[in-house]
Amino acid sequence: MSVMWIYDKKLQFPVKIKRPDPRMARLIITQFGGPDGELAASLRYLSQRPSMVTPMAKATLNDIGTEELAHFEMIQSMVAQLTKNASIEDIKGSGYEPYYVDHGKGTYPVQAAGTPFSAKYFQSKGDPRTDLYENLAAEQKARSTYEYLLNLADDPDVIQPLRFLREREIVHFQRFGEALRYVQDYLSDKKRFSYGKMKK
């Protein structure tokens, strides 16, 4: 195999939205290119990988960083389907107009307020504990964002994938917390650390 990842031609969770809703598209786009969005999450974890000191933390960052790319694709699919059949009449007065004049119906990584994606949204500090603390906070911020989006959504076709994505942030938070505990054990007592002495 000569590539870093193999593309799997399916979504992690289905996105099948019947009703166009440019207003919701304009809000959901923030999880595509916003500060707590899926692209920032993926690049954050994948960028931090070499700083990780335990096998568990390396695998955790690698695999969650990869899963976030699948979420990036789900968000893109939601935005694309919410706008595909939207008429100009649907777009007028929906809040989608500023985005429309810059990007039409293209998916471009911006936050809901319109600022384009930036690597300034995350850190890679070279200290595994610091990075894992950032990741715990990042998962909570993403969970909050999904909750705010859910407060503003009314279509079950939109709500289902948003709920799935929210739940994944909770699982990721759990896994980063476990990885952090083992990193702390390792750093506080390098010599005694071994698989045989892992706590259950």
Binding site: K9, K10, P14, V15, K16, K18, S77, Q81
Partner: peptide
């Protein structure tokens, strides 16, 4: 392709 409506199944 996966981002298209037609690709996905109904839940």
């Amino acid at each position: 392709w996966p981002w298209q409506y037609k690709f996905n199944f109904d839940l």
